[in-house]
Amino acid sequence: MFFHITLERNMQLHPRHFGPHLRDKLVAKLMKDVEGTCSGRHGFVVAITSVEDIGKGLIREGTGFVTFPVKYQCVVFRPFKGEILEAVVTMVNKMGFFAEAGPVQIFVSNHLIPDDMEFQSEDVSNYTTSDGSVKIQKDSEVRLKIIGTRVDATEIFSIGTIKDDFLGVINDPGAAS
């Protein structure tokens, strides 16, 4: 689920950036530092939308770096248990398959794949129904439901299922090509 929230961060700026473009440098550095990171609390920071406030800088003793408290608004993404996501399959093996929904990795074990889908280890390993009408392989798009998340300080890993109504392949690249 996406959220638009306000976060705060103390930015350290090297003295060489002091000058007329100090603010731009600060924002650029903020984006570089923050976007794409993951915090266990808020999830993945997808994008910074605006910088609300830059506080007074504090020169650190010894180094000459200046610390600015920066308030910024950003879009974060965090998977929740029970949430339905659309994801792209990245890897298929005998134990299940891995998929990615943006920055989030999701594993779907073979117990959580419908029983009528069998693992096929052809040149491209896949899960296929007995009549071959539905096929899950690498780069397939699937709709899945998160049944559990493990949130570390810098990482979020999820387990999903496609064993429920209206879940499964939504766009089969193999069939299209």
């Binding site: 890897m91 093996n93 005998k94 134990m95 299940g96 891995f98 990795q105 594993f107 074990s109 693992f119 280890s121 390993s125 559990g148 493990r150 890993f157 387990i159």
Partner: peptide
Amino acid sequence: SAFDALQLVSMTDEYF
């Protein structure tokens, strides 16, 4: 548990 799947997956074969 399945949460550890990412670490368990091997590049050589289909198993954990």
